[in-house]
Computed example of a mutant assay.
Amino acid sequence: MRTTFLFALTITLFACKEKQFHLPEVLPIDHPAIVTQEFIYELENALTPECHASTVEVSNGVVVASWFGGTKEKNKDVGIWVSRKIDGNWTTPVEVVNGMQKDGIQYPCWNPVLFKPKGEPLYLYYKVGPSPQEWWGLQMISNDDGKTWSKPTLLKEGILGPIKNQPIQLTDGVILSPSSNESTDGNWTIHIETSPDSAKTWTSSGPLNNPKNLGAIQPAILNYGDGKLQLLSRTKNEVISENWSIDNGKTWGETKATALPNPNSGIDAVTLKDGRQLLVYNPTGKNWGDRVPLSIALSTDGKNWKRVLDLEPLRENTDNEDEEYSYPTVIQAEDGKIHLVYTWNRKTVKYIVLNPKKLQ
């Protein structure tokens, strides 16, 4: 299993190809909870100049990752890419779909989300369109753990699918998908899309926040049991916002600011099997758009969070303004291991496995 980087070779080769991009020193993070840390593909083997918005799922023991990649976010050549970890190694990334339309117009793809409902195939949700204000949602299905995919199908009008983070499935089988809208007038709203039948049909809750008070997008769902759920969302207001439900998401309380900072960057969170809540986020807020460091915080009540690990710390003697570690996706597999992926300077995807028992 490859668990280390080809540090000197990677930096040398990539620096030659990308003279204008300042790469930080690539160092492994030393922490007892880290089982694996690696790039899904090495920098010198990148098939696209940029990548972003990665997602991960474990399907029948196979680790599957996806992201969007192309010349640059919003460019029409941006498609959805997939790699699988087989026998300890990541397969060469494959573009599984692009935004080409029947009329010959091609649009960029956005924000893939992998999700496997219990007893169902692996789903890949994504968006296509000229911008987040105009995109639409689609899905593909894999019956062989991400090796091959069905043709894309359009989600019904009014349903966008999970915008960035995975849905959760309740004990009764109901699926709650965290979604949001970015309107052309600049308003950001979050909502929940619900499926009672293993992701076959969906209904939308409608907006859960007043964007004039607190604009929010890209929620993540945490489950405290006994019907108690929490949404944590990205905002423009330098903080992560929250909503609470006490009836398994049928109704939601007011959107409020938390004490957690947010530099207008994507977050993700997962409820661990031991009852703790785990958040992956950029713990900066005053410098809007600052996406370093990337950190993990833990909580038992969703109110008091303790930052316990910097996956990408601030580095001395480095111009951190040139760096970006962002848009994490985090899951916990059946064996208890925590899997997460994130954007590494928009050049590759970093993959980390954690042992939650050593994450204190």
Rank of each mutant, 00 (worst) to 15 (best):
W252M: 05
D247R: 06
L229T: 13
G225S: 12
G275E: 09
P219T: 05
L214R: 02
P283I: 09
L208K: 08
I267E: 02
S299P: 04
G302S: 09
T258K: 02
T271M: 07
P261C: 08
A220M: 08
L232H: 04
S245L: 11
S233N: 14
N264Q: 02
G275C: 15
L294A: 00
R291L: 04
K228L: 05
E242H: 03
L272A: 05
T284L: 14
G302Q: 08
W305C: 08
N262F: 00
A220Y: 07
A259H: 10
R276A: 15
A259F: 10
R234H: 02
G249K: 05
G225H: 07
N287E: 10
A259W: 04
R307L: 13
N237K: 14
T271S: 15
L298D: 11
A297N: 13
L298G: 14
T251V: 11
N209H: 07
I296V: 13
K212T: 10
S295K: 04
G302D: 09
I217V: 09
Y224W: 13
S233C: 13
Y281K: 02
Q230T: 01
W252D: 03
G225L: 13
G225Y: 12
D226T: 12
G302K: 05
K286R: 15
P263D: 05
G289F: 03
G227H: 11
T300M: 15
W252S: 03
N210V: 13
S245W: 11
W288Q: 09
G225R: 13
G253K: 07
P207I: 09
N213Y: 14
P261Y: 08
W244E: 05
S233F: 10
E242Q: 01
I296E: 08
N210E: 15
L222I: 10
Q218Y: 00
W244H: 11
A259C: 10
E238F: 01
S299T: 14
A220G: 15
I267Y: 00
P211W: 09
I221A: 00
A259D: 14
R234Y: 01
E238H: 08
V270W: 02
A269Q: 06
K212S: 12
P261W: 07
G266C: 00
N243E: 04
K306I: 11
E254M: 12
K250W: 14
T271L: 08
K303V: 14
G249E: 11
W252T: 05
P263V: 00
D274Q: 14
G266Q: 00
